[in-house]
Simulated scan of single mutants.
Amino acid sequence: MEPELVIASSSVDAGIGCWDLETGVKQPLHYKSCASTRHGLSAVGSRFLASSQLRDPKVKNGFIHYWSWSKPGVEVKSFLAEPIKPIAANPEGTYIVGGGISGKIYLWETATGRLLLERWEAHLRPITCLVFNDDGSLLVSGSEDGIVKVWPLLKVLDDRETDKPSHRYLYNFSDHTMPITDLVIGYGGWNAVIVSASEDRTCKVWSLSKGELLRSVAFPCIINALVLDPAETVFYAGGKDGKIYIVALSASSSSSKSPWLHIIGSLSSGSDAVTSLAYSTSKNWLLAGSEDGSIRVWDPKNMNLIRGFHHEKGILCLFPDLP
């Protein structure tokens, strides 16, 4: 059986690190030449990794690097008209999307590399987060404008909607007052929930079927990262204060007397700000990357720290369960 790998990138040009999740042993395959943006690393099906790259602020263009699984060197470089921050691929790896600093979202067909849509004016400010639902039919975007939008992919790709960008989205959630920092979407098709985090120190839980806000959870700090428990009874929120907050999804509405009612626990290891979270469904382990370059693996059931790795400062993306 192939080992389950932990993949991590950071904002410094340290490449992409790989570890065996079971043993903690660093793997010899090290993907080179990567200084990733926030939410800028994605697995594209079982074929390759893609990462948007940081550039000199004076340089107008942006670019994305692609690596095949078995080769450490960059195979393809894609140059773009503007810097791209987050990227995401649908579960099958058919499409790749990238969010520009202009608020536009770009969409490519993976098989041909063809840019299918380049004037998708999604937001008024830079895109910060992009995530597909479990069947790839919906894309959820977040932006520095504080807005979360839900996009049906069929509608986005409909040529008849080209001149009607406002008609392409399904929902426009605008309850946050500051930039969106992370997004997660649950399983269950139209019965799924979306959780959004913002610099306004709240996380909001949205109903996909009803298109409405279910609850808002206040935190003592900015939340940088989110991940759902596979059972979707709780979500984990990585804070700027170095803690990972455990939040009940099914709790009743919060009262004015207890604005943090939904927070039922926390994990803390004394590290810097938590910048990325991931969940290994095969192990039922929680992974957390921090600003100081540490990656920690937790057993969330008994709240024990299992092991740690170290990459480079400014970890921005990590994930397990790769092919």
Rank of each mutant, 00 (worst) to 15 (best):
N284C: 08
G238I: 13
I105M: 12
L153Y: 04
C34N: 14
Y187N: 09
W151Y: 04
I180T: 06
V148A: 01
A50N: 04
E109F: 07
L226F: 15
S266A: 12
G17H: 09
F173M: 00
G40T: 10
L226A: 15
N133S: 08
S137P: 04
S51N: 02
S36D: 06
K243Y: 14
T110H: 09
L153P: 00
S46G: 12
G293E: 09
S271T: 15
G24D: 01
S252H: 13
G99Q: 10
S294T: 13
D229L: 13
C221P: 01
R114M: 04
K240P: 01
C317F: 00
Y279S: 09
A14T: 13
G113W: 00
E161V: 09
C203P: 11
Y245H: 08
Y31I: 05
L322E: 02
D229T: 10
C203W: 11
K71L: 15
L318P: 01
S141M: 08
F63G: 02
W69G: 04
I263S: 08
I244V: 15
V184P: 01
E232D: 11
W120L: 13
H167G: 06
T177D: 04
I180S: 02
L277F: 11
A231M: 13
D56W: 07
P28L: 03
P179F: 02
T202R: 07
K85P: 09
M1I: 14
D292Q: 07
G15E: 05
D13V: 13
L115N: 08
E121F: 15
S143A: 06
G93R: 11
A8I: 00
P57I: 00
Y31C: 04
C34L: 08
G308V: 08
F309T: 05
V97C: 04
D272S: 14
K283E: 12
Y106I: 03
L183M: 07
V44F: 06
V156I: 10
M178R: 11
G238S: 11
S102V: 05
F132Q: 10
S276P: 12
P72D: 06
S9P: 03
L5N: 04
M1N: 07
A273R: 04
D299A: 04
E75W: 10
T233P: 09
A89D: 14
S253F: 13
T23H: 10
G308P: 08
S141Q: 01
P220G: 00
L29F: 12
L5T: 03
P320A: 10
S42R: 11
D56F: 07
K204A: 08
N304E: 15
S252D: 15
D241H: 06
I180R: 03
Y187L: 12
K164F: 07
K77E: 06
W260P: 03
Y66C: 03
A35T: 12
R114A: 03
L49C: 02
L54N: 09
N302I: 11
L29R: 15
W19I: 00
D200F: 02
L228S: 10
T181Y: 03
E161M: 15
W151K: 02
I64R: 01
L316F: 07
E312V: 12
I306F: 12
R38F: 13
L183N: 03
A248N: 11
I246T: 07
D134G: 02
D20I: 07
V12W: 08
Y171P: 00
